[in-house]
């Protein structure tokens, strides 16, 4: 009799074990949908507050770097302003309008095989899932989910992020996707073989989807490989964003996104 109870008891443990593992697998699978507003991620208020606290501490050690980046950004903006003033008359051409919204990064990983950022800024400041995120030096990622005050962002260093890009010199389209190895290299895919792709070519966003504005830097071609049997180049690019130091980012808000997407869906 005792043996029977022992047996049943062991089965109970195993059943709980199986049940919990199934719940875990379900969580993993359902989180892998592209966008969701689920509370089990880093834009959840509690974990975001903890992240803000620990970021506040480490920010003190990065102040020099942050200042330097802000100065560079100011320089760039100044230069652009001069250009704009010089060509003020020719600016009447209607263009797509993009607004940007600055946000502080409170958590950022770049060494895992799937990477995310958490930023300080959520629904209250008009940030919605699906919006693009850039920094002063280039493409950073795309918003995954938002809470009231925080947002979780797919880093460009996430295998699900595919950025529609253009090789600037030849205006050829391709896709940039991270290959899970190091945080400064990604792959440039689908550039056809008749294009003379060279090491050193600049790759920028194409602006074909309404996530990123056109002409935002993605990276520079660092390695080109073309065998006889291949239809497309196998190219690596060195990313222009330094993911190891990313104190501030900008969320891109595309004003006519809905209109553009709906007309393209027809």
């Amino acid at each position: 009799m005792r043996k029977l109870f022992d047996f049943l008891y062991r089965r109970r443990t195993f059943a709980i074990f199986l049940g919990l593992e199934i719940v875990c697998i379900w969580l993993i699978v359902s989180f892998n949908q592209r966008q969701n507003a689920d509370f089990l991620n880093s834009s959840n208020a509690l974990s975001a507050q903890v992240a803000t606290g620990s970021q506040n501490v480490s920010d003190y050690f990065d102040l020099v770097e942050i200042n330097e980046q802000l100065m560079l950004e100011n320089e760039r903006l100044q230069a652009e302003l001069r250009d704009k003033i010089a060509f003020a008359d020719s600016l009447d051409v209607p263009t797509e309008t993009y607004l940007v919204k600055g946000a502080r990064v409170i958590n950022n990983t770049f060494r895992r095989s799937t990477n995310y950022l958490t930023i300080l800024g959520g629904e209250e400041s008009g940030i919605l899932p699906g919006m693009g995120v850039i920094s002063t030096s280039g493409v950073v990622g795309q918003v995954k989910s938002v809470s009231n005050r925080y947002a979780t962002v797919y880093s460009l260093l996430h295998p699900k992020m595919i950025v529609s890009s253009t090789v600037k010199r030849t205006s050829t389209n391709g896709s940039v996707q991270w290959d899970q190895e190091t945080y400064d290299i990604a792959s440039l895919k689908y550039v056809p073989r008749h294009i003379g792709l060279k090491v050193g070519d600049t790759v920028v966003t194409s602006g074909f989807n309404s996530v990123f504005p056109p002409n935002i830097n993605v990276g520079v071609v660092s390695e080109v490989n073309l065998e006889d049997h291949m239809t497309f180049y196998e190219a690596k690019i060195r990313l222009s964003v330094d993911f190891t130091s990313l104190p501030n980012v900008f969320v891109v808000i595309h004003e006519n996104k809905l209109e553009k997407d709906s007309i393209e869906a027809l």
Partner: peptide
């Protein structure tokens, strides 16, 4: 023990954007 493992893992998951992985 299993329940303790599950809840601890889930808390860590919330912080690392990996629901289910640490818990599992």
């Amino acid at each position: 023990l299993l329940l303790a493992g599950f809840s601890t893992g889930l808390i860590v998951d919330v912080f690392s954007n990996t629901p289910g992985i640490h818990a599992g």
